[in-house]
Simulated assay, not measured.
Amino acid sequence: MKPSDAALVAAALADVWLNVDREDRSSVAVALLAVAALTLRRHRPLVAFVLTLPTALLTDAVFATLAALYTLSSLARHRSLLVCCALAFAVADFMPWPWSNLETGDLGRPHVLVNITYTLATAAAPVFLGQLVQAHRELSLRLAEITEAREHQQLLTSQAVLAKERAQLAREMHDVVSHQVSLIAVQAGALQVGSRDADARAAGATIRRLSVQTLDELRHMIGVLRASGSRPTELTPQPSLADLHQLIGASGIETELVTNLSGELPPRLQRAVYRTVQEALTNVRKHAPGAAATVRIQRHGPRLRVTITNTAPTRPALRLPGAHHGLIGLGQRAELLGGSVTSERTPEGGFALRLELPTGGAG
């Protein structure tokens, strides 16, 4: 029993104690039945009201009947039923029992009219209060539904804006970036074919191969961006640790790969390692020409540590445009996997990039 129900039963018992003659066993029985009926008011409100009605007829203890009438009014939706119940209580409370005790001409006396008015007001009060509580409850539900609908609409609006931005980005990538990379590939092919210098031809072949790979990735990324609004699309093919040797070989940097891994890592960890090594080698090409690099991928218990270090540059670095978002993106990727990325300059004039990830017991 809820605390509110227990308090209501206690108040009804107090009403019985004060207003029922304990010598009249029938009145006491009817009053106690009304008190017990209050335990049914939440699940069977009409039954509870009917069981409490006799106490209003036979005794002055009407608290249980009023409480049952209030509960019925707060739950029922049929106004005609509530009117009938209120009139039934008013008649039971006003009329003497037995009804034959009502004397002829009593209904015309002023004090009787006052009593009738008071009884009708007493019967109407719990009905109005219960209807008010019901309206408040329904209003709260409607407000909650409106709030949910508004949040859903805002989500749809934000998704539509995001889809529009992704479509615009896809157009820009297709019209500008892909075009420029295609020109790079064409010029590199011309250099590969037309140059007499073997090193220049090799460089042209490398540039052309990387340009073609970049175009393939761009085309797939454009497809992913244009697929917004449909099911999530995975960027495929996804790189893994098996692709590190090809990445290092195509980097044009003298790189040593050291690893003690045994067993397979989850694909998400392999992608994080690959992207970290890729970004580090890209930075070496841009900022440390002529430097050599070392890639160490080692496992220490439940942690995976990747360290990419490079020596000091042997040639002046070219001034290339960059948004400095590479390391930020690596840090965000690592945080999503529960790891971290740190970077620092080495005492020898080089640079070190470190990635640490939890393996989660894999492999």
Rank of each mutant, 00 (worst) to 15 (best):
D5E: 13
A7C: 01
A14D: 15
V16W: 08
L18F: 06
N19H: 12
E23S: 15
D24Q: 10
V30P: 04
A31P: 06
A37Q: 02
L40A: 10
R41N: 07
R42E: 15
R42M: 05
H43D: 14
F49K: 00
A56T: 02
L57G: 08
T59C: 05
A61D: 09
S74I: 00
L75V: 10
A76D: 14
A76H: 12
S80K: 10
C84N: 09
C85S: 15
A86Y: 03
A88I: 04
F89G: 03
A92V: 02
D93R: 15
F94I: 04
M95L: 15
P96A: 07
W99N: 05
L102Q: 03
E103D: 07
G105P: 05
L107Q: 06
Y118L: 11
A121W: 07
A123M: 03
A123H: 09
A125T: 10
A125L: 14
A125E: 04
F128I: 11
Q131A: 07
Q131Y: 01
H136S: 13
H136K: 12
L143Q: 13
T147I: 00
A149T: 13
R150V: 10
H152S: 15
H152P: 02
L155F: 06
L162M: 10
A163K: 13
K164L: 09
K164V: 00
Q168I: 08
A170H: 01
M173N: 11
H174T: 05
V176H: 12
H179Y: 11
S182F: 11
V186D: 15
V186S: 12
Q187E: 13
Q187D: 14
A190R: 13
V193A: 14
S195W: 04
D197F: 01
D199H: 11
A203N: 10
G204H: 06
A205M: 11
I207E: 08
R208Q: 15
L210C: 07
Q213A: 12
E217F: 00
L218T: 04
R219K: 14
R219L: 03
I222R: 07
A227N: 12
S230V: 00
R231D: 15
T236F: 06
L244C: 01
Q246K: 09
G249K: 05
S251A: 14
G252K: 01
I253T: 03
T255R: 05
V258L: 13
T259I: 02
S262R: 11
L265N: 07
L265V: 03
R268D: 14
Q270M: 02
A272W: 01
A272I: 07
R275I: 07
Q278C: 10
L281I: 04
T282P: 02
N283T: 06
H287C: 02
A291E: 07
I297E: 13
I297F: 08
I297Q: 08
R315F: 09
P316A: 11
A317P: 04
L318S: 12
L318G: 05
R319A: 14
A334C: 06
E335P: 04
L337N: 09
V341S: 08
R345H: 13
E348R: 10
G349T: 05
L353W: 10
R354Q: 12
L355Q: 07
P358L: 05
G360S: 00
G363P: 10
